[in-house]
Nucleic acid binder design. Structure first.
Lengths: 184, 184
DNA sequence: ACTTTTATATATCAATATGATATATATCAT
DNA sequence: ATGATATATATCATATTGATATATAAAAGT
């Protein structure tokens, strides 16, 4: 899934500037399952415009750089329909925190606790923000995705609360687990 | 977190070829929370070797291209320790499937069901493969990560089984939810 | 018997994405 | 006043992705 399709998705909900599209991937409805930065968004909007899939209205502002408000066109809606009908790729997750917990035995106790606390706080915050959303009038597909995120966040918080001892104890390794490689 | 650190992590468990490192991110213990392809792994191994963080032993094989078996060095272990002590970046998730479900109202009923079934089957398979793992002698940090993955997979399967109706029903949109933009 | 697919194994490459940085200004809090 | 945060666009070096090329063996299908 490329940045062009992602931008079309955001613009399907409402007209937006590049800045606002970025916010959709940081705080908005897409933040739960995708990420996209300026370096992808601005080139994507340029291509979409050249392809006639979006239009752009430039609004001059006092002092600030002019807003460029993008709108999806009927051709853009068709392109989005086509894109979402493709076979989806497998989910891709990148969690530096889980990588660190995997190697918890290389870390000091204080560091393990700091990472644990930060991670748990982060997911508690995400959980709360989804719980505070108003679901009235939201289409079923979006409700499904919203509930999906909620279920994941709840599972993360519950698991961390119940099993934190595995990474917080004074000795992170149950057994030394020697390497099998040439180093022996 | 760059590919060099990821390769060091895999080599911390055991010596491996580039091919085997890739498998770690597809089926092995890292598959749950990270992904890394050949295009990242081979250049990373080259750099690690030049930096003295890994060594390489070439084993000629009958017919097939020679295996290059990499081992982490003491300097490599230090570099890994330093890397896992850094502040972790936020988790990044890319789910094309959830993007599609978000726009379920743009899809036909058969297509929605096909995507739903494929996704649920995929997570049931992941769940089963983690459940079949033997946990005896596994260090606590790795148990934590393994259990974390298990908790997520269980939450996904349970949520999908209980709320599939939101994307499987004949009419995917509760209300039409008109766009607010310039198209009106 | 023949063909296709899967698995082992390395490697490169074009296209894309990431993360940081630069530029400007307004607003809000200290 | 000073600094931090928010709005807004844009670029750039570096890193990643996904596909492709090269070889061979083994397994599975026809």
């Amino acid at each position: 899934m490329d940045a062009r399709t992602l931008c079309l998705g955001v613009l399907m909900l409402d007209d937006a500037t590049g800045y606002e599209i970025k916010k959709s991937f940081e705080e908005g409805p897409f933040a739960q399952f995708y990420h996209c930065g300026f370096g992808s968004i601005y080139p994507a909007l340029g291509k979409l415009r050249a392809e006639g899939l979006v239009t752009c209205t430039e609004l001059a502002q006092q002092g600030r750089p002019g807003k460029k408000v993008y709108s999806i066109t009927p051709a853009g809606i068709d392109a989005l329909k086509e894109a979402v009908a493709q076979s989806p790729a497998d989910d891709k997750i990148r969690s530096e925190t889980l990588f660190m917990f995997f190697f918890a035995d290389l870390l000091g106790e204080a560091r393990r606790r700091a990472i644990y606390d930060g991670y748990l706080d982060h997911y508690r915050g995400l959980l709360q923000s989804v719980r505070e959303l108003d679901n009235t009038g939201v289409p079923r597909g979006r409700l499904f995705v919203r509930g999906f995120g909620l279920a994941i966040y709840e599972a993360v918080v519950r698991y961390m609360e119940e099993h934190g001892d595995l990474v917080l104890g004074g000795d992170a390794s149950a057994e030394p687990e020697p390497r099998r490689g040439a180093a022996e």
